[in-house]
Amino acid sequence: MEYVVQQALNALSIGGEYALLALGLAIVFSVMGLVNFAHGEFITISGYTMYALFIFAAPTSAWGLLPIGILASITAAVVFERLAFRPIRNAPATTGLLTAFGLSIIVKNFFVTVVATRSKAVPTPEFFTEMITIGTINIQVLQILEGAVTGVALMLLLILLRHTNIGLAMRAASTDFNTVRLMGIRANQVVLAAFAISGFLAGLAAIFIIARRGAADPFMGFAPVLKAFVAAVLGGFGSLAGAVVGGFALGIAEVVFQVVLPESIAGYRDAFVFLFVGGLLILRPQGIFGQSAQFGDKEG
């Protein structure tokens, strides 16, 4: 029983992390058709900003690093949009995807050159790693926080998307950007908002990723975002609800494979997870929430 609860919490916290990242990808994609492969770099930039602050400002408490980490991620998202993605906004989806790849390479190499290839320790509040005992079950604070923060973030996002003009505009833009502009809503603002939200969600995920690893390295953003991509495709690329469901589904699948696979082939976990996703996509190519019969949509 304890084991099951423990693993379920694991699935929930990993799934939450994927959901935050997948949602960021999906928001940007639904608004402007861009597959942002540089999304992982928001995490990396967040990590190194916290590292730099830790080294140069030497704060007494690690709590102070957290908002700065999130802010760095948002800033990075907005700057990327302005400098790299705006010039190619109307280009085919493939162009955007490859530009994002280029950006990702540049950012990684920046940290390799300026800092180092090796990872650098980044402190997070000790509170994160404390254990809470409920009945007979020990839970790490971090896991609870991850679930709770993901939940709150999703709620805030829902309110934003339902009850603010910019939120409505973002939802509307996913099907018809031009008509949104005919409402007098500035295209740049909608795109900027999408990137800022995407950066904010990545920043939240970054805090948890860093708390778990305790360090930043130039390639840290890649693996989680790769999973987030798979989660987004699983949910139906561009569907916001799909991204969340896909994220949690992937988290659950990972934990299940972790538990079920015998020791000798545990190293293949990711391969099994991806094969599982591939199998699902054969049955349902448009993903869980995607629209069917859209062959060719948003295609370069």
Binding site: A169, R171, A172, T175, D176, V180, G184, I185
Partner: peptide
């Protein structure tokens, strides 16, 4: 027409008055 199909009538009209 190009109405926003995923949005409600209410939400469509709110966007119309967004400015």
């Amino acid at each position: 027409r190009h109405i926003f199909g995923d949005l409600t009538v209410d939400e469509n009209l709110r966007l119309g008055a967004a400015v």
